[in-house]
């Protein structure tokens, strides 16, 4: 179907064009914008306060959890009778090193399989 428009209606719409004066419209919109900005600020303060409160409540348990995980990561995989080899191999002989190695291997495998 053609996109033709009725010329009579087209001219009527064109003749009905009028510029609307700003009057209070722009200031009403900007008042709304200010109100939104104030609410956004109140929301941000509320979220920040909630985060601080959560941090205060959860700080000690979170610290304990981190300490426990760190301790677990440093557990030796192989136990030596003599202290010297145990001390020398400590940087490699632990759960963290094994996990790191596993990650490196997985990454290499992924690159090989999906180049």
């Amino acid at each position: 179907m053609t996109e033709e428009r009725d010329p009579q209606l087209t001219s009527l719409f064109a003749a009905a064009e009028e510029k609307l004066e700003e009057r209070d419209f722009v200031s009403a919109v900007m008042t709304g914008v200010e109100k939104q900005a104030r609410w956004a600020l109140v929301r941000r303060i509320g979220v920040a306060a909630a985060l601080v409160l959560c941090a205060m409540i959860l700080a000690a348990p979170a610290q304990d959890a981190v300490a426990a995980v760190m301790h677990w990561l440093m557990v030796p995989l192989i136990r030596f009778e003599q202290p010297l080899p145990s001390q020398i191999l400590l940087p490699l002989n632990n759960v963290a090193a094994a996990l790191f190695l596993a990650l490196v291997v997985l990454r290499l495998l992924r690159r090989r399989l999906f180049p």
Partner: peptide, 18 residues
């Protein structure tokens, strides 16, 4: 930038309200 938005409102208000 609220002043830039205000200018946009000023320019577009008549067209949109019509």
């Amino acid at each position: 930038d609220r002043a830039a938005f205000e200018e946009l409102v000023r320019r577009r208000q008549s067209w949109l309200r019509k």
